[in-house]
Structure formats: structure tokens, C-alpha cells
């Protein structure tokens, strides 16, 4: 297991300063060199939206975007995130407006307890960045590492397809206005 908040002995303390872009803000943060990205986000930056379900890379509750790719933040040391661009669940909302994916998750009951949702949202967000009309199969592949104990993943599939449709219409509209 990689060292995290709950790890066994961590000593001596080796502090590092890390500079990265989080949710659009350039951020400088001091943390222990052995901290994971997950616990740097949660403990040092107070971004507790990203969850810890196992700290061993098995559940996907901690998924965040790092340089446009979804990664398990419990499996990445904070110093490895130096200079990267990170998006967490807190960064999906723009100007007080929910991302269509966030709204769709609520409308389709893509969650119950909601503990898997931050990681699930980011995995789906990453998918929609590269695929504006994903099939059921493609959505399942995108969330293959995201464990949900409350649902049977059907609401997630529905939510992603609903959000994708909305985003497509939006894009079409913008294209039209651009012309």
C-alpha cells in the first residue's frame, strides 16, 4: 500500500512544495513528500469531494483528472503531480451552473449514498471529453474501475447518455450561432 493518511509509520517528515493547476487555479501547496495526491487534495487543500474507499487502487472513489486522464489519486504521490493540471469533482461546476453530467446524475438516480459519485463523475467526464456519443459498452469501459455498492450502474449509463445528448445539442447550437 502506498503511504496515505492512514498508513503505517511515515518518518522522517520530508516536506515538499508542489505547484500545480487545480480546477483552473494555479496552486502552490506544501505537503509531505510521501503524501498521496488524494490526501494532498483532502487534507492540505480541503477538497474533500474526492473520496477514499480503499487507498489501494481497487475502488475508483478517488478518481481525478490529471492532465486530461482519469487516475486513481490514491495511487499517485503528491510530488508526481508537480506541474500537472488536475480536475476534481469540485471543478465540474462552472459559474454556479452544474455540468450536464452532474445534473443528469441527480435526475437519473445514478447514485444512492453518493460516495462513489465524485470518482464516477470524473471517469464519465473524461469519457465525454473524447466521445460525445458513447455506447453502453463504452460507458461501462470508462467506469470499469469505479466500484459502486449501492446501484447496479444502470443509472450511471443513463445519466451519461442523457448528458451526452444534451452536450451534443449545445454544441450544435453553438456551431449554428458561430455561422
Amino acid at each position: 500500500m502506498l503511504p496515505g493518511k492512514n498508513s503505517e509509520e511515515r518518518k522522517p517528515v520530508d516536506e515538499v512544495e508542489i505547484k500545480l493547476n487545480i480546477n483552473g487555479n494555479v496552486t502552490q501547496v506544501k505537503t509531505e513528500a510521501s503524501t498521496t495526491l488524494l490526501y494532498m487534495l483532502r487534507d492540505d487543500l480541503g477538497l474533500t469531494g474526492t473520496k477514499d474507499g480503499c487507498s489501494s487502487g481497487d475502488c475508483g472513489a478517488c478518481v481525478v483528472m490529471v492532465d486530461n486522464k482519469p487516475v486513481n489519486s490514491c495511487m499517485m504521490l503528491a510530488p508526481q503531480a508537480e506541474g500537472t493540471t488536475v480536475i476534481t469533482v469540485e471543478g465540474l461546476e462552472k459559474d454556479d451552473e452544474l455540468h450536464p453530467l452532474q445534473r443528469a446524475f441527480g435526475e437519473t438516480w445514478a447514485f444512492q449514498c453518493g460516495f462513489c459519485t465524485p470518482g464516477m463523475l470524473i471517469s464519465c467526464y473524461a469519457l465525454l471529453e473524447t466521445n460525445d456519443d458513447p455506447s453502453r459498452e463504452e460507458i461501462l469501459t470508462a467506469i470499469a474501475g469505479n466500484f459502486c455498492r449501492c446501484t447496479g450502474y444502470q443509472g450511471v449509463v443513463n445519466a451519461v447518455q442523457r448528458a451526452a445528448a444534451e452536450l451534443r445539442t449545445k454544441n450544435e447550437d453553438t456551431e449554428k450561432t458561430d455561422v
Binding site: 452544474l98 441527480g106 453518493g114
Partner: peptide
């Protein structure tokens, strides 16, 4: 939608951890 849906999808919902 559930009354707490907005908190959940924005990461604002607070669980014990």
C-alpha cells in the same frame, strides 16, 4: 432528484471522513 443531490454531485456532501 433527491434533496441532497446537488451537494453530492458537487462534492460538497460531508461524510464522516
Amino acid at each position: 432528484a433527491a434533496p441532497g443531490a446537488r451537494e453530492i454531485v458537487t462534492g460538497q456532501a460531508r461524510y464522516c471522513p
